[in-house]
Simulated assay, not measured.
Amino acid sequence: MTTDTYRLGVLPGDGIGPEIVPAAVQVVDAALAAAGAGAVEWIELPLGRAAIDEHGDAVPAATLETLAELDGWLLGPHDSAAYPEPHRSKLNPSGTIRKHFDLFANIRPAKALDDADAIVPGTDLVIVRENTQGFYADRSTYKGTGEFMPSPDVAIAMGIVTRPAVERIARQAFELARRRRGKVTIVHKANVLRLTTGLFRDVCREVAAGYPDVTVDDYHIDAMTVHLLRRAADFDVVVTENMFGDILSDLAGEIAGSLGIAPSINASHERAMAQAAHGSAPDIAGQDKANPTAMILSAAMLLEWLGGRHDDQALRTAAALVEQGVAATVRAGTKTPDMGGATGTREFAQSVAATIKRL
């Protein structure tokens, strides 16, 4: 048994966040105990609408200061579109945290679970999304926004692609492929966006030269959407720029069965944040209907990341137990409504935790 203690942040967020984040904590605790891993000190921090009401800011300065002292954290979904002004017009909570800590890699797996109604059975791929640049206005400038209106009838958005940013995300993709099935697919639109996504494609190809053991191909973004629908099981690691990665990962999550099972982490070399790929689903908040799978699997990704960073095999074992526990629970027929079942959020998490104890 390891004696290491990790300090992990808990930011429940809005909507279904206060339901699915505690569910993930419950499952992680069960997996850590089963793996003989060190203890986790969970530190809950204010974020989102509750933070606005209590502290006057969706991401209080004290929250950012505390996060900087932690090993990682779980971020629940936010409903920034429902915030009162001026908070609604500010950078949203997850964007604020990503930008503050330069979490440049958004890693989004899409893996079909048995008996989870996958559109393409056998899907098992990972979207590696560059998280700091591209065509999203909140990420294409150091300060302010990359979107502006010179007149009421003209709107302009800048898309930024730089060699250093592409190099570091490409290395993440190729290193991940080495641990998986040894294949990277580069997605771009270089036939139209020749300079920006052309640079992305070309720099990824240059990085690929340092990984002769990894097979590389590339597709235009529009063609890639068709290939995912037709043959998602043929892809391993997909690396792409920010907006394309956002779109492809949502598509891949649904192909694998549901956005409710789509996990992700946002990471730099020093820090990582577990964050489900889906939104806050305010229409079902507080009804015990939300699928916590994506949040639970995101937490497993955080454990795996921490295990690699700290060379802690017990954390890696705990991460594997979480994945096995979810898969076995779904296979046994315990499923939330979005997966065709009738199990509530709390019962699903309890079932996963119990399954882990039996593994």
Rank of each mutant, 00 (worst) to 15 (best):
V207A: 04
M243S: 14
A190H: 08
A112K: 03
V214D: 05
T141W: 00
S140V: 09
T123S: 11
I43A: 04
A31G: 05
G253I: 13
D57F: 01
I261W: 07
D312H: 04
A23K: 04
T66S: 01
R178N: 06
W73D: 02
G182A: 10
L195M: 14
N266C: 06
D71Q: 10
A81Y: 08
G15H: 05
H310G: 04
R108G: 00
D115H: 14
R316Q: 13
A23P: 03
T196R: 07
A256G: 11
A105W: 06
G340Y: 11
F174M: 10
G279P: 09
N92C: 01
F174D: 08
L45G: 01
A276H: 04
H220Y: 15
L125N: 05
W42A: 06
H278N: 11
F135I: 15
W42V: 03
V21L: 04
G72K: 01
G257I: 05
G253F: 12
P109F: 06
E54V: 05
L315H: 10
D236A: 12
M301V: 13
T123A: 06
D202E: 12
I247G: 08
L67V: 09
I265C: 09
E241P: 08
A232Q: 09
E254K: 13
P18T: 08
K99C: 00
E19A: 05
A24R: 07
Y83N: 02
Y219S: 12
A277F: 02
L74F: 09
L302H: 08
T162H: 14
G333R: 11
D217N: 15
D153A: 02
L47F: 06
P150M: 01
A39F: 12
P109R: 11
E254V: 14
V154Y: 00
G122T: 12
L321Q: 13
S94D: 01
S94G: 04
T343G: 08
H278V: 08
A39T: 15
Y211P: 10
L64R: 00
C204P: 04
D213P: 09
D218Q: 11
I296R: 07
D57R: 01
Q275H: 03
G72P: 07
G15T: 04
E69C: 07
A209R: 15
T5A: 13
D79P: 00
A58L: 06
E147V: 00
P212S: 12
Y142D: 10
A208D: 07
A318H: 04
P93D: 02
G210M: 11
I221C: 13
Q133S: 10
L113C: 07
P150R: 00
P12K: 09
M301S: 09
L64C: 02
G159Y: 03
R129T: 02
S264T: 06
M295K: 06
M273N: 01
L70F: 06
F101A: 02
M243F: 15
H227N: 14
M1V: 12
I265S: 05
D217Q: 14
A157H: 00
L67A: 03
P263A: 05
I265V: 14
R88M: 00
A327Y: 08
A277C: 13
R358V: 12
T145G: 01
A252V: 12
I169R: 04
G15N: 06
P77I: 05
I119M: 15
A33C: 13
V120H: 13
S280M: 03
L75C: 09
A233I: 06
A34R: 13
